[in-house]
Design a protein around this nucleic acid. Structure first.
Lengths: 151, 151
DNA sequence: TTCATGTAGATGCAATTGCATATATGTGGG
DNA sequence: CCCACATATATGCAATTGCATCTACATGAA
């Protein structure tokens, strides 16, 4: 066993470490800026957007909770409660899923679609400002490709 | 005013959007894997590492809270409570800062240094597994450089 | 039918976060 | 010296998260 492995695993080189730190910091910074834009526009939490977006994309504007879960990486209990909040605001509605008594549909309402559009009017420009404007098109493409390797 | 700008700002192109989604997802996935490794090793939360690391790096193993804040991007109230927890575990100690009655030193203890090392024995290999092993050295360097542009 | 096992989703509870505000101290006029 | 204002850190409280567990329904085998 080599010296480097004596603690049970390879250690990361400086490039790898820099990539990890960069990933954490960049995400934090950009997220903070986008969230600030959201607050300035008195919008609900950013996380709501993803769920609304998935629903709007989906056929008939509805998905099963576990489908949303898979698409958004949200934890099951976390999504369950997020749906509660969205429903309380009238942005989605729960509907029975007849083929399986355990299941349900989460359906986006008209208010939900409108809210997603309203959020996008802030979100879109915010992404452009905090990311698009800092990278060339080629760089953005390259960044996305590198990040994809980490999934 | 052009059609694209009628909503108050440029919209991001698909490359930019892909970079943003990739950033969020990659960070989430990698973080989840690393946290799983931490739990498997019965280690405290990952966030403790950064504070301990900054203190270990610092001269005399101590920093003022606001200095830690700047280095870690933690929110002020968040750090204040994190220090409480670290102190309760005996990993750091608060000490008076004589030159300014409002201030204090946060000093890393021997137990704190030992804990940081113990954490690194999991953290290092985890970073290597989940990031290093998925990228060439050149890719990691490139990724870090691109992410640096977002700060 | 019955039971063992698996899956969809909800929920109690403790810990953490975010926000706003509080406390204490420092500083530069006037 | 006194005051207005700035800075360092803490904290009450409501909202959110994580974890573990629970309920309800489904499914396949005996």
């Amino acid at each position: 066993m080599s010296e480097r492995e004596k603690d049970g695993g390879e250690l990361p080189g400086p490039e790898t470490t820099a990539a990890w730190i960069g990933l954490m910091r960049a995400r934090e910074r950009v997220l903070a800026r986008i969230e600030a834009d959201f607050k300035a526009a008195t919008l609900p939490p950013l996380g709501w957007y993803d769920v609304l977006w998935e629903l709007v994309q989906a056929e008939e504007g509805r998905l099963r909770p576990f489908e949303i879960e898979a698409r958004t990486l949200l934890a099951q209990y976390s999504l369950s409660r997020l749906i509660d909040r969205l429903a309380k605001e009238g942005l989605v509605r729960r509907e029975a899923f007849d083929a399986d008594g355990r299941g349900q549909w989460v359906v986006v309402t008209e208010a939900g679609r409108a809210m997603r559009e309203r959020m996008w009017r802030t979100y879109g420009p915010s992404i452009e400002t905090h990311i698009g404007a800092r990278l060339t098109e080629a760089e953005a493409r390259q960044l996305a490709a590198l990040l994809a390797k980490l999934r």
